[in-house]
Design a protein around this nucleic acid. Structure first.
Length: 270
DNA sequence: AAAGACACCTGGGAGC
DNA sequence: TGCTCCCAGGTGTCTT
């Protein structure tokens, strides 16, 4: 579920319920996620007000006075705010309870996600060396062309590289390449500049549109009903192997790039 | 420095 | 019905 639009939707969904509230309890049921949940979180945040909820790449930042709780949803994670505890289900590994009655609860069946802490002295090493945010001007055609110049990797793997641009996952990489008419398997230094320009625009457009869509299901998400697939009806290629292209009716093809399946239209994407 | 393989983990679906 | 195998939204780390 969690690509950038889902992470952004999550941030927007949880913020109004918990911002300004004081953390009262931290509950760790399963400390072993991708990394061990650090013990220090409780002592840092209990009694402190949550100042803000923000996002860098796919990392959610819960900002407190002395530092931030960093949450990553991995492949299968989700965060919800509960107004009362309906009882703990399987895979619900971590809670922060607040003095307004809200419970922020992390669910993550595959445990590829993470809960970490960063203080105000220096940013966590995971957040250093990240590329630009796709929806800001820091991600632009000029920088993108420059970065692509001497790279021989495929254009699809290139746009999924966190140092090039953050937040482009497997779904939206495939969709952005379709929207810009680029074969995912092309070496990025062989793609025409005009197409790279379209690619930058497509990444921005598609992520933006998906966030707008995510907003419409915000209530369900927060209400505890977080179902995946908001954007599913918009997808042109992802998950459509063997089906016909919506633009030209050709049969869509799947290839593996960097061990990730990639669907594209052999006619529309040259 | 860059590219590729591999790791972590659980659940669901296909095929037998 | 049940077993085995493959696949899945991510990304840090180790090897070439």
């Amino acid at each position: 579920m969690p690509e950038l639009p889902e992470v952004e939707t999550t941030c927007r969904g949880i913020l109004p319920h918990i911002v300004e509230a004081k953390a009262t309890t931290v509950v760790v049921r399963q400390p072993q996620l991708r990394w061990l949940i650090p013990d220090i979180i409780g002592s840092e945040i209990i009694g402190q007000r949550l100042i803000n909820v923000s996002r860098r790449a796919k990392y959610i930042l819960l900002e407190f006075k002395t530092g931030d709780v960093i949450i990553h949803l991995g492949m299968s994670g989700s965060l919800r705010v509960l107004q009362q505890d309906p009882g703990v289900q399987k895979h619900e590994h971590f809670d922060i309870c607040f003095d307004n009655g809200s419970i922020l609860r992390l669910t993550d069946p595959r445990r590829f996600g993470a809960v970490l802490w960063q203080d105000r002295v220096q940013p966590h090493s995971l957040l250093q060396n990240l590329g630009p945010e796709p929806l800001t001007d820091a991600f632009n055609y000029e920088g993108f062309i420059e970065a692509a110049k001497n790279r021989k990797t495929t254009v699809k793997q290139f746009i999924m590289d966190n140092k090039v641009v953050v937040g482009v996952g497997n779904i939206y990489a495939a969709e952005a390449l379709f929207a810009s008419g680029i074969n995912p398997n092309t070496a990025v230094n062989k793609v025409a500049k005009s197409k790279l320009k379209r690619l930058v625009e497509s990444i921005k457009y598609i992520l933006g549109a998906a966030i707008t869509q995510g907003g419409t299901t915000l209530k369900d998400f927060v209400g505890g009903d977080g179902k995946p697939g908001y954007f599913a009806q918009e997808l042109q290629v992802y998950g459509r192997k063997g089906l016909s292209c919506n633009a030209c009716q050709s049969i869509l093809i799947e290839v593996k790039l960097g061990q990730r399946s990639t669907v594209y239209c052999p006619k529309c994407q040259k």
